[in-house]
């Protein structure tokens, strides 16, 4: 398997993502600069967290028009696996690869702490190594993670089981208190209807080794690697 991590000006989780892919998962991994115009022979593309273009205008709105994004969109349209975390999720929404938008957190705070999410659907290429209802602990670090989409879109997301992760209590209850940022229906991560593009606000790449306090994020990387092996 070969992976690429896209680097935008202002990305700051690109090396964390690279480290997990290359050294924890043992995947052949390379960086791609946002001005690159070819993806090459790649099985999966990773959009990292950070503050691309300083979050100017709206988060992800300028990165979305970087030259490499035309290639990422083509790659996704061709069924390629695309995974965005935090700012990567915001870029995928702005690019129209995922529906909806990430608004400012409802309490206006930049939220930087451990959270727990519940796995809502294990029949995806990003969650097949998880168990239904499994609770994953991972950190979040964002000011704009408050997921919103129009009611019709939310209804379709729920009907198609595209909500893959939801903010939940440690016991697995979906409560308003567990909903750290005010997201509609506690949404922490969604995939597209085809199931090859996923975006999430929590950071699995910062929770993929026990030394970091949680290795729960590795379930997601294991899922991706297992599914790529099946497809190749």
């Amino acid at each position: 398997m070969k992976a690429a991590v896209i680097v935008f000006p202002g990305s700051n989780c690109d090396h964390d993502m690279y480290y997990v892919l290359k050294h924890v998962m043992g995947i052949d991994t390379q960086f791609l600069w946002h001005k690159d115009t070819a993806i090459g022979e790649i099985d999966a593309v990773f959009l990292p967290g950070g503050f691309s273009f300083g979050d100017y205008l709206r988060t992800g709105s300028i990165a979305r028009f970087s030259p490499i994004m035309d290639e990422v969109i083509k790659f996704a349209d061709g069924g390629g696996l695309v995974f965005g975390v935090c700012n990567g999720f915001q870029v995928l929404c702005e690019a129209g690869l995922l529906p909806g938008v990430l608004r400012k957190n409802r309490n206006l705070d930049f939220i930087c702490r451990q959270v727990t999410v519940r796995v809502e659907n294990t029949a995806t290429r990003f969650s097949s190594a998880c168990t239904q209802g499994q609770i994953l602990q991972m950190p979040v670090a964002h000011g704009e993670g408050n997921y919103y989409a129009e009611p019709d879109t939310i209804r379709k997301l729920e009907e198609n089981r595209q909500v893959v992760f939801r903010y939940a209590t440690v016991e697995g209850e979906i409560t308003d208190r567990a909903n750290i940022n005010g997201s509609v229906n506690n949404i922490a991560g969604i995939c597209n209807d085809r199931g090859n593009v996923l975006g999430m606000m929590p950071h699995p790449e910062r929770a993929a080794e026990f030394q970091l306090g949680s290795a729960d994020g590795k379930f997601i990387f294991d899922s991706i690697v297992n599914k790529i092996a099946e497809f190749v």
């Binding site: 205008l57 709105s61 702005e94 938008v101 608004r103």
Partner: peptide, 8 residues
Amino acid sequence: KLLANPII
């Protein structure tokens, strides 16, 4: 295309 996000 850029300046506004018509969703919100």
